[in-house]
């Protein structure tokens, strides 16, 4: 925590991800201290509404509000990792657009640290604009931002999904987001908050040849109705049981059967052009894909029950969510 004049800067880091926030305070004397983050955070949150005063003495920091009084032993200021200023040039982007894209893509990134490359979101620039891609090897989300440029065409970076999750949380409702992409680090600034993250090294899987040019079977359903149906049927999809979609005719049937527990079935109106088939999906992955789509109606395009299926929004060709089925006997 660092006070300069009437500005307090709070910085937190785990060496990979660093978040820095600047707020206006009533500063009496400049100074800096390192304090245990969770402890101090818990204290301040618990205090009654109103002004909080923080004073640093030699070996203790006192925090008080109303009649409450805490004192916390600070950590060594010298041991705190040095903070570097980002070197790369800043590009300013509409924050709402980036937030929307992150919401759609980051959900597909892996959280398994054993597969570091898949925990990242790929930002790739080409002549048309920027593309964001994430996959955990079960599903793949691709969002195009045409006309957006943050680096030279042909370049790409791999940003940890965890950092981008945090970015969505700290962005708030600012209008502009500034982005700096360095060789080893990416820095985002939104209002008084700056988030820096190291980049992931390694080669992102070649996803391009997975994106099909055409599909023989196309289902169109209402987004809200489908999400509701999955939410209900999922109750009976326990122990990684999939939800089965029976396609054919002008309805789609969803079923979940968990041995020795029970069954769930629901039918919703749909339009379908293709051969009759049953295809099964992990209900969470399926719901996540549908939820990500910004349209009232979504399409599910399939080849067969063993091949990746593609979710898109009707009238939106800037986003797709590729999902591998669950093979069922």
């Amino acid at each position: 925590m660092q006070v300069e004049g009437d500005r307090l800067t709070v910085t937190g880091t785990d060496l990979e991800l660093t978040i820095r926030l600047t707020v206006d305070v009533g500063g009496e004397r400049d100074g800096a201290a390192v304090v245990p983050a969770r402890l101090v955070g818990d204290i301040v949150k618990a205090l009654p509404a109103g002004a909080v005063s923080v004073e640093l003495h030699d070996d203790e920091m006192s925090i008080s509000a109303g009649r409450s009084q805490f004192s916390v032993r600070p950590l060594s200021l010298d041991d705190y990792p040095a903070q570097s200023e980002p070197a790369a040039d800043a590009v300013t982007l509409p924050a709402a657009m980036v937030a929307d894209a992150l919401r759609q893509v980051v959900r597909a990134a892996s959280t398994d640290d054993a597969r570091a490359v898949l925990t990242g979101v790929l930002l790739a620039a080409d002549d048309d604009g920027l593309r964001m891609v994430a996959t955990d090897s079960y599903r793949l989300a691709v969002r195009d931002l045409p006309g957006t440029s943050v680096m030279a065409s042909g370049q790409s970076v791999l940003i940890p999904g965890r950092a981008l999750n945090e970015l969505q949380r700290v962005m708030g409702d600012v209008e502009e987001l500034s982005v700096r992409l360095g060789d080893r680090e990416a820095t985002f600034e939104a209002g008084g908050t700056r988030l820096s993250t190291r980049l992931i090294e390694g080669e992102f899987p070649n996803y391009r040849n997975l994106l099909p040019s055409s599909y023989p079977n196309l289902l169109t359903v209402g987004k809200a109705a489908m999400l509701e149906a999955i939410r209900r049927v999922k109750i009976l999809a326990q122990d990684s049981t999939p939800v089965r979609l029976t396609l054919g005719g002008d309805t789609v049937q969803l079923t979940a059967i968990t041995q020795d527990v029970g069954n769930a079935a629901e039918e919703i109106d749909a339009s379908y052009d293709g051969v009759e088939m049953t295809v099964a999906f992990n209900p969470d992955y399926l719901a996540a894909g549908i939820d990500a789509i910004d349209s009232d109606d979504v399409t599910l395009a399939t080849m067969d029950p063993m091949k990746p299926a593609v979710l898109r929004g009707v009238g939106r060709d800037d986003y797709l969510y590729l999902l591998m089925p669950v093979r069922v006997p």
């Binding site: 090897s137 079960y138 599903r139 997975l210 990684s240 049981t241 992990n282 669950v326």
Partner: peptide, 12 residues
């Protein structure tokens, strides 16, 4: 059991 196997995208 391979009763319900989440298939993997055929990257490789």
């Amino acid at each position: 059991d391979l009763d319900a196997v989440q298939l993997v995208l055929p990257f490789e």
